[in-house]
Amino acid sequence: MKHVTLLIIGMLLLVLGAQGAIRLLADHDNAGLLAWLPGGFAVWLACYAVAAVAGALLAGRGGKKAKRGDREQ
């Protein structure tokens, strides 16, 4: 169950990070969820990229562990 939770959190981070980065690249003034963060375009884009990469890593790890757990049972 904890691996499925890890998978879901990772997928949410991946979606939010990728969607935010694409929105920011299309419209440089629309920071979305990170509008409160000072620093401007470069900081916002870096934060969205980190969220997307972290989400992909978490989702990948959760997916592998969940599959491995299903096979063992």
Rank of each mutant, 00 (worst) to 15 (best):
L33Y: 11
G55W: 09
L45R: 04
L37I: 03
G69D: 13
L7R: 06
V4K: 15
A21R: 14
G55A: 10
A56C: 10
A42P: 00
L24D: 04
Y48L: 02
A46Q: 07
V50P: 01
K65S: 12
L13K: 13
A51W: 07
L14V: 02
V53H: 03
D27E: 07
K67M: 07
W36Y: 05
L37K: 03
I22H: 05
A18G: 14
G55L: 10
G55F: 09
L33A: 13
G63V: 00
G40T: 04
R61Y: 10
A35L: 01
A51G: 01
A26F: 07
A59L: 02
G10L: 06
E72C: 02
A42T: 05
W44T: 06
T5K: 13
I8D: 03
V43E: 03
L16G: 04
G63R: 10
G69M: 07
W36S: 06
G20T: 10
K67D: 05
N30K: 12
M1D: 13
L24R: 08
V50I: 13
G20Q: 10
V50C: 08
V15M: 12
F41D: 00
R23P: 00
L57T: 08
G17C: 09
L34W: 12
G62N: 08
V43W: 01
G20W: 07
A49C: 09
G60F: 10
G32F: 12
R23S: 12
L37W: 02
L16K: 11
I9T: 13
